[in-house]
Amino acid sequence: MSDKFQYVIETEDLGRSFLTYKKSEGLINSIKGFWNRETIEKVALHKTNLKIEPGQIVGLVGANGAGKTTLLKLLSGLISPTTGYAKVLGYEPFQRNPQYLKRISLLLGQKNQLWWDITPLDSYALLAKIYDLDEMKAASRVQDLAKILDCTHVLETQLRRLSLGERMKMEIIGSLLHEPDVLFLDEPTIGLDIVAQETIRHFLSSYVKNKGPTVILTSHYMDDITSLAARLLLISKGSLVYDGTVPGFIAKTELIQTVTYKIKDAPEMKEEVKKSQLNEFLVQLSSMGQIENIKIEETDFEDVIHSFLQKESRLL
């Protein structure tokens, strides 16, 4: 159904601020604050314009408190905007129309969304009722997804007795049970070991290839972004600072490369060189003597984003 829209997600000047009160240090200020509180407005997300086409996988990256989760909450209808509007699948998210909610899914990596005291199978049966699904089909879908995620053996164990990795697999099945058109994934691999991260990454990658939902993914693990997302949104201090492809971002950034070299009769050296100056550096190096060994390493994507955000936060 999402192919009816040119853009599945569209926002115009979408922003959110909230009021909080200033709490100065000390007991006297606590007493003062009891009757006189200074309210301050904090902008969590500045006016944001965004257009996302059907089937796109968008990686949303930023530091803690940058506004990533606020954007996801606005798009999933959890909170209301203070400026502008958003349209997702033609719906205004904050209206929380049941027909809209049936077509989206929000997976919060840091929160349990299934029921703690019952087994995942019981949770899925309840979800099938909530989403008004054919119960037989839903049950068979659970088995299919559990097989792919290799977690069939824990379906009948209460959620509270499962490990973090198993719980996350269960949450993923729960969020995909109704085959959403739009998936909001907030840190789906957080806290998991490398093997579990890889399993979930692989699963999500093949799922989106097969089913083609539109996905917005936030993660602190850059492997999640590079292996899943075609488009990258970088957010810093509540503002979008980059919107484009991952390779485009790398090309835009002045990359630093690490050159490790050994010249005859000299100790091994290591230097960081800007990519644009690499040729010049190599010419200089060859004139210094006979090169016995040389290794040029690309900077990690995570480091690139990190330095980009650092630079941005100094500018903002």
Binding site: K73, S76, G77, L78, R96, P98, Q99, L101, K102, I104, S105, L106, L108, K111, N112, Q113, L127, I130, Y131, D132
Partner: peptide
């Protein structure tokens, strides 16, 4: 605590 979020995104 915001754990209501998981319920608010369900069609119920």
């Amino acid at each position: 605590q915001g754990t209501i979020n998981g319920l608010l995104v369900r069609p119920m």
